[in-house]
Design a protein around this nucleic acid. Structure first.
Lengths: 247, 247
DNA sequence: ATAATAACAATCAGGATATCCTGTTTTTAT
DNA sequence: ATAAAAACAGGATATCCTGATTGTTATTAT
């Protein structure tokens, strides 16, 4: 997994928690920059490079907007071009085929989701990071975004397309592994817990929160949704404290 | 909610559990017959009625197959007609427009899901019905079907289409309410539990199991999926036994 | 028996969509 | 300064899909 580069600090005892956190955050920012489709922002790029990156970003953002708003089935290249306020020719210049565009959109959506995850996790105060409900809240907020809606659309579309499926799956596993590795760094209470238990806790949150969101048409009552999230939080807490007898 | 007709027995004390179960099962079968798109199977129908119902069923089944196999975006009326082995003219005779077809497919899918739910729930032995893992198993099996894949496709497509959205939502809430009402009948241990707690347990299972299934590309390891289901089972058990402190 | 109706079958027209292709303008390299 | 290349713009086309139309055969009602 090339995404996950361990922090170089020798021992957790040596560095303070604060320093480790800062190191993790700067490393995460570096990772985000690495995935940034607009490489031109940093380097001293030529005019053409900057212009190209700019329109490509506009196209990708427009595609996400279309996917989130109209769904995959109704998203056409013309729609995207119109939303990005460029001509179909310009669109074709940057992305020769539709699947080429979609492939790039997949990469872009994962980049955006990574960035949003970073935003959510750093928004939490240290106190909230010691509270399990903080973790569940991160995932719940993470899911209520246009990027996640686009992600969902691409997810189901990729499942029926071998080519896109491979790209999507690769990025999905990558992002899952990455966000998983951030947990013990940002949520210190989990450092003592075994990898398997942490994995289980993460899987439950991911599945339950995503299922809760996608079932929002059926589970319409806000109280019911809150109750489920609270229950998940309590389960996770008990799991962490070893109060649940596994196997 | 016209779907849910309470059993006419006056008091649970009066009738034995066995009788109540049988009554519930026959009532459920009646409900399934009521939703059956092929009304002609029972009545002494004319040749034309039977023929018509037969091809309509073939079309609906073909549509489900196409949705599950190729996804909503790639499902065309031509595909469906070809899969059903009928001409496009015949297709158009029965379903004048595509949205008319899709609307019927939605109804059909919910009918099929209801039937599958009934199949799963009656397959459980009485012993397994007293075990929470039995309940979780029912939902897990319920989700691993072509019908559920078609349901998912229709679910996301309906979210972006006002007309279909209304049909879908109505049926979804109906099915949810119906399956919810079956729980205390088939799972006797839940009779003593409050409606709110039962609702919460049901919501957690629905969300977690559905999320687990839709994330199967990411949570690829069978062990991880089993672990999540076991954890959900344990949570539900503790919830039922009042071992979890709510609010 | 016959008219009406239903269940198809087979084309056709119209529209949408992805891709191609030919220009035009602007930037960059030499 | 000039050639090459990149960043567009927009019309043309081929394909696919939906829905309409017409025709044919089987059945039902009277």
């Amino acid at each position: 997994m090339n995404v996950i580069k361990k922090i170089k600090s020798a021992d957790p005892e040596d560095v303070s928690a604060e320093e480790a956190l800062k190191a993790a955050m700067s490393q995460m920012e570096a990772e985000i920059i690495r995935l940034d489709p607009d490489k031109s922002a940093n380097d001293e790029a030529s005019w053409q490079e900057r212009k190209s990156a700019q329109t490509r970003l506009a196209i990708l953002a427009a595609a996400v907007e279309c996917l989130a708003k109209h769904g995959y089935a109704k998203t056409t290249t013309q729609q995207v071009a119109a939303t990005a306020k460029i001509s179909r020719g310009a669109m074709l210049h940057h992305y020769a085929t539709k699947s080429e565009l979609i492939a790039s959109v997949i990469e872009y959506v994962f980049y955006r989701r990574m960035k949003l995850f970073f935003g959510e996790i750093t928004r939490l105060s240290e106190e909230r990071r010691r509270d399990v409900t903080g973790g569940v809240e991160v995932y719940w907020n993470w899911v209520q975004t246009p990027e996640f809606d686009a992600f969902l659309e691409l997810s189901i579309a990729s499942r029926k397309d071998a080519e896109l499926g491979e790209i999507f799956e690769t990025r999905a596993i990558e992002l899952d592994a990455y966000s998983f590795d951030q947990i013990p760094i940002f949520f210190p209470e989990w450092k003592a817990v075994s990898k398997e238990t942490l994995r289980l806790a993460n899987d439950l949150i991911v599945a339950a929160i995503q299922g809760l969101y996608t079932n929002r048409q059926i589970i319409t009552d806000r109280k019911r949704r809150t109750a489920v999230r609270d229950l998940v939080s309590k389960t996770i807490l008990m799991l962490r404290e070893g109060e649940i007898d596994l196997n």
